[in-house]
Design a protein around this nucleic acid. Structure first.
Lengths: 129, 129
DNA sequence: GATTTACTACGAAACTCTTCGTTGACATCC
DNA sequence: GGATGTCAACGAAGAGTTTCGTAGTAAATC
């Protein structure tokens, strides 16, 4: 076995991953600048979290340049699915279907969104045939 | 305003809430016994977490008997929706629809489950008409 | 009434997360 | 080449989480 469960990212880590997914490989300064459009996070704070994420294996670091370049190790969708599976396990008795149904009834979706979901259902049903 | 955001429950807290939702109002011993079917958690650990949850307002405590009785303050569905909204915000750019679609495509659902979801979609569409 | 049992309360220890100041290395610019 | 700026690394502080030992108190038992 090469790869254990990647650890669940914390809130701050997720915010940083969001930047990396959007921008691609980035330096600490890139990430810091992107995040500081909204709230204020110190430069060294971002650096520290990226270092921790490197230790955890959430990101990969390229040290060939003076300003190290960080890249998310797992894709956005993979991480999202991991988070969903995790939440299903912890709060929905392991049932992803319950999770979906709760997510659907918990809010008013537009007709367009409902149709998009319906199409996805059709695709899935076709595949599993 | 009477009620601020309830705080996001931690993993341990969620496990305890699961017991309270299933059993209804329970003493510490009830919760402890229910949890220890699986893993091992000390009695005083459960007590402590319930005390903290009381401070946070996640549960309500009835102290009229010697063995205090704890009850979840928020229903299971309300909490689940809160967690989903929270995850949508943190990891899906605020889009619950993206969350649903990722949850659907992330796993193979049975035909029966897909049909249940489809029915729910119909109901939702009827309502929003 | 004394002993045993059941329960809450208190507090401490270990751990994680978040934050940031400081330091030292490296590069760039007068 | 000495000053200025940029960067990674380190360390530490404060908050939250999880764990549980110990103490105190009330009830039940003998």
């Amino acid at each position: 076995m090469t790869d254990r469960h990647p650890p669940r990212p914390t809130d701050s880590e997720l915010a940083i991953l969001g930047v990396l997914w959007e921008r691609g490989p980035s330096t600490v300064r890139d990430v810091h600048d992107a995040l500081n459009k909204d709230g204020a996070t110190g430069y060294t704070t971002v650096l520290k979290i990226l270092q921790i994420m490197t230790e955890k294996g959430l990101v990969v670091r390229d040290e060939s340049e003076r300003a190290h370049v960080y890249e998310s190790r797992y894709g956005e969708q993979k991480t999202q699915r991991q988070l969903l599976a995790d939440l299903a396990e912890r709060a929905f008795g392991g049932s992803a279907t319950k999770l979906v149904m709760q997510a659907l009834s918990g809010r008013k979706a537009s007709a367009a969104e409902l149709n998009a979901i319906r199409e996805l259902l059709d695709t899935l049903e076709g595949e599993s045939k």
